[in-house]
Design a protein around this nucleic acid. Structure first.
Lengths: 215, 215
DNA sequence: TAGATTGTTAATCGATTAACAATC
DNA sequence: TAGATTGTTAATCGATTAACAATC
């Protein structure tokens, strides 16, 4: 029995982009796209589009391309984005507040349904209709609300402890915004959005940017 | 004349992590680290640490390891993180507000010194001592304040236009938070922090996570 | 000196690109 | 049918890992 081959990370991320673009095409009334068209729109090559899609199956029609609406629906389903996801957000600070009402999350069905912070000054605050709860409430709330995802938006010093608590409470995946490494059991996927790494590497590129762009 | 070899993107990102970790070691009073120690701390192999550092030079002492303080200072300098960077933030929405006071940026010398938004409802708002300016002020402000970086925190529909305006105004690098592709001249480095891609790919991994972790 | 650890080269692995037969 | 475009295989490219001589 062959276990389904793992999707390489870069492929997965591009598939997400393809889906997003397909939905935009749809909104623009476009019914069919070819791999070069889809590639152009997201900054990938036609070959890459086809190769990436082939990890998931065969969706095109030779000579014609892909049906926008159908491929979008299929990818949404394959990515499990055709349903709601409930998340607990830990850290009632600045980014935390922003994420509570973050449109791209909402539009995709990601709902932050509980808010936690251990700072007594923040307990009882209400953001986007959510009351900030103490961490002691985490396990109960995760269970009661059927929360599957945890979002870490605390200072780096606290991130590992929070991750441990999230895992213990039963979340199945973690999105980490703290600029630090967090170790979790390998059956709990974790993705880090490390904004500091982004801006710092950008600064390096600016400071050392190619004098002469290729002709 | 050999142009200095480009640093691969993954290498650059890890170097940023090494620097961060070295500074933590320093704060903990650790004076010397070996490549396995540094690697462990950031989740890289010892070989990778050494290989990565070798893109920038030779910093270790055989038989002893690396001097924490000295390597940190050297990397800070090579990454151009031993100086201040001024950024203009476009988009006075939720993420914009969070970024204005985002500690990891501040601590690294990234200062948001001007705030722009074209929504008349937001003009005149003041966040973190910055008054929201209309986009028409961008070129003048970039010039007057010596702004080098632009941060895009507007809805995806507006992102490309804002990027064009930032480039025209003279910023040298862009950090894009809008969940969309943005095209800029190739002498302007751009990094995208696409939080939607992060959470969506996380959801896929959760929904399809390996039943049995490797033994 | 002996032990430890670097810096670098060679081997491996994985991802991207190119090419093209299949086929709508 | 002829033209277009897919799905896939093979070739290339790039990044990671392993190994080890150099050397502190």
């Amino acid at each position: 029995m062959t276990p389904k081959p793992a999707i390489p990370r870069p492929v997965l991320e591009r598939i997400v982009l393809y889906l997003r673009q397909l939905e935009r095409f749809r909104r623009d009334g476009i019914d069919t796209v070819s791999s070069p068209e889809l590639g152009d729109a997201v900054g990938a090559s036609a070959a890459q589009v086809r190769k990436d899609l082939s990890y998931f199956g065969q969706f095109g029609q030779r000579g014609h391309g892909y049906d926008v609406r159908e491929l979008a629906r299929t990818l949404r389903s394959l990515l499990s984005l055709d349903r709601e996801w409930r998340a607990a957000l830990v850290g009632a600070g600045n980014i935390g507040r922003a994420l509570c009402t973050y449109r791209p999350f909402r539009e995709r069905g990601f709902h932050i349904v509980a808010l936690f912070d251990n700072d007594p000054h923040r307990e009882g605050l209400t953001w986007a209709r959510l009351k900030v709860q103490p961490m002691s409430q985490l396990p109960r709330t995760v269970r009661d609300l059927g929360i599957e995802l945890g979002i870490i938006a605390v200072p780096p010093e606290a991130a590992q402890l929070v991750a441990d608590q999230l895992v213990a409470a039963g979340v199945r995946g973690i999105l980490n915004f703290a600029p630090t490494r967090v170790v979790v059991p390998e059956n709990v996927p974790i993705r880090s959005a490390d904004l500091a790494v982004d801006i710092e590497s950008l600064a390096f590129l600016v400071a050392n940017r190619a004098e002469a762009p290729e002709p």
